[in-house]
Design a protein around this nucleic acid. Structure first.
Lengths: 349, 349
DNA sequence: GTTCAATCTGGGAGCGCTCCCAGATATGAT
DNA sequence: ATCATATCTGGGAGCGCTCCCAGATTGAAC
């Protein structure tokens, strides 16, 4: 009946190409996979026909036998805050991951956490998806379920933050938060600041804790006291910077170290409202070097971190693990760069 | 030799589950795919074993026979400008796409254009990737090669902008730029503005052209002249807003319609430098309602568009097309909303 | 000429599913 | 009891590849 109206013609396969080239399936496979033991003449003939027919091998069939898909996954749980408070980090990171995956001929599967919604369902979907050769997990804090799950699996994964646990069993790419923070605070000390306060990040996250540790270490090295009254716990948000600063103004201070540029925004806002001059009365420094850091008033002294490279390295590392070019847990800490602008008062001296 | 050191144990398959349940491969398959003709008792027994073993069917094997992967792709070419000038649109759109794909149990393959790099290589990778059931193409302007390619293919695809050509053969989800712009300009006219200028967007992009057409239409409806000297061609960038405004200041004007909130930022900057009061001397309106629109001074009157919903609908539509629930090209125009703040001078009257 | 290794080529087996068809069993009408 | 029908169940075939092994061909060495 519908012989002539076959609307969805079967696409070509190896056998079809083989027939047209007058060779066998196996030979075509060898040509496609660039294997040896094919005469130059045959190879060229086959390649010509592949080109001419626009033939592309079926990835599902290939994956079925090789157990590799050439696909890696990227999970970004609980994005809402990321998206709305800092719409820079996440796209930039993806850009880096994307660059590396494409360069190595992989594709990238993206999993985004949904606003408000519990990540439970997402995690189940990710765990059930056996299409990936490996996984990049962004934003480490409370994604323990994912990490624990994949620790019990043979699926390679890489974090782009330092994990909160199992440090030595997990591969990750991060920045040297502690030393960056140490350098930043030392810079303030060198400028003559002595009563240096801080609004920390989320201390359940290694990033937050490490930055605080760097702050303390810098004071200790300089022989300055670590005064707990000058340390207010925040959570990287602008709001925590604003409220933290209001609390800090009870004390006599001459500098505030914000845990992030977003937090610094809140700090500046609170200082402005209290009619305190920056940097004359109080110096302010941030962390991250978001594009807006140069645009606030006064321009923010901060720590630049290579976000895109972080993504690129994480993807490269993951693919190396997948392909067996590297073994076991690998940890990479990227260097950061102190960016001196006006908010620290460097121009004053 | 290495019998006991088999490091990568073959994971379970249907046959294994079947053996444990004392049934056949086929019955397990029926249970997994929720097909009828399985007795309730058998179904429960099989489900229990699947649960207990944590069995997940091999997607590659499944895809090989069904010709469906439950994966859709999203292409965002030439992201650099998007990322750096407007880091909001793109993540929000992805969030919407992601929400819809996850809800319908699909996964999302993401393809990002690389900074500076030619998109040629990316396009080849996308075209060669036969893992996707369908494709969402963001940012329509110059991606003709992709669109033309997939028009000749049976792969369903959906744009999230209005295409520059083949309108009626292509499925897309966009907003009603023309009427939104018309409403916006009419609002200015109702406020008494008479010399209304505009800095357009990229006129090679339908979005840009439609917004300009809405501007003209509004003037015509009000019986006002369309003065070409009051129309400066821009490209959605802040810079074009800045330079366009400087050019417009040669004319006598009382309002500027910016093609986007980003452009409006440049417009405000130029007016500020020229010491022209907004909205007293010149009213300014934008388009897009970025989060920053409410934060500039004065807060920007603009057009709110449902970006996340755009992504969600595009993905939903694509999956409907993939699954055959909908036919052929489908076009959706989403409604927008006029957001009146201070920059239009509404509060003055 | 023969012999041997290196180089090339083809086809069977199998990856883990779905689909189809044949056969078994239960259910109800006669 | 008999038969027709609806409900279940099992196994073969096949999706399009890769991998392995056996056989064919070549070329160099003797």
């Amino acid at each position: 009946m519908n012989v002539s109206t076959n609307s969805n013609p079967r696409s070509m396969n190896l056998e079809d190409i083989a027939a047209r080239a007058g060779v066998s399936r196996s030979t075509v496979s060898r040509v496609i996979n660039n294997e040896p033991y094919v005469s130059e003449k045959t190879r060229e003939r086959v390649l010509a026909i592949i080109e001419q027919e626009g033939f592309i091998p079926n990835p599902a069939a290939r994956a079925l036998v090789t157990q590799h898909t050439q696909v890696i996954g990227v999970v970004i749980p609980r994005t809402p805050t990321v998206v709305f408070e800092d719409a820079f980090y996440f796209p930039t990171l993806l850009q880096g991951v994307s660059a590396a995956t494409h360069q190595r001929d992989y594709a990238m599967l993206l999993w985004l956490g949904q606003a408000g919604e519990d990540d439970e369902r997402l995690y189940r979907q990710i765990e059930r998806n056996r299409l990936m050769d490996g996984l990049i997990i962004a934003s480490a804090p409370s994604n323990d379920p994912l990490i624990s799950h994949f620790l019990n699996t043979s699926l390679p994964f890489v974090l782009v933050e330092r994990p909160g646990h199992d440090y030595d069993r997990i591969s990750y790419v991060s920045i040297d938060n502690l030393n960056a923070s140490l350098e930043l605070v030392t810079h303030l000390i060198n400028l003559g600041r002595r009563r240096i306060a801080t609004v920390t990040g989320d201390l359940t996250i290694p990033d937050g804790r490490d930055r605080l540790d760097g702050y303390k270490r810098a004071l200790q090295i300089a022989g300055l006291p670590v005064d707990e009254r000058l340390i207010v716990e925040g959570n990287f948000s602008q709001r925590s910077g604003y409220e933290g600063t209001q609390a800090l103004l009870q004390q006599k201070i001459d500098a505030i170290v914000a845990s992030s540029d977003i937090t610094a925004r809140g700090v500046l806002q609170a200082l402005h409202e209290a009619e305190i001059r920056v940097p004359e009365d109080v110096a302010v420094v941030g962390f991250d070097d978001l594009p807006t850091a140069a645009q606030v008033i006064p321009p923010l002294t901060t720590v630049h971190q290579p976000i895109e490279e972080r993504g690129r390295l994480a993807a490269g590392l993951l693919i190396d693990l997948v392909e067996g070019k590297l073994e076991g847990p690998q940890q990479i800490l990227l260097p950061t760069e102190l960016v001196i602008r006006q908010s620290c008062g460097a121009a004053l001296s």
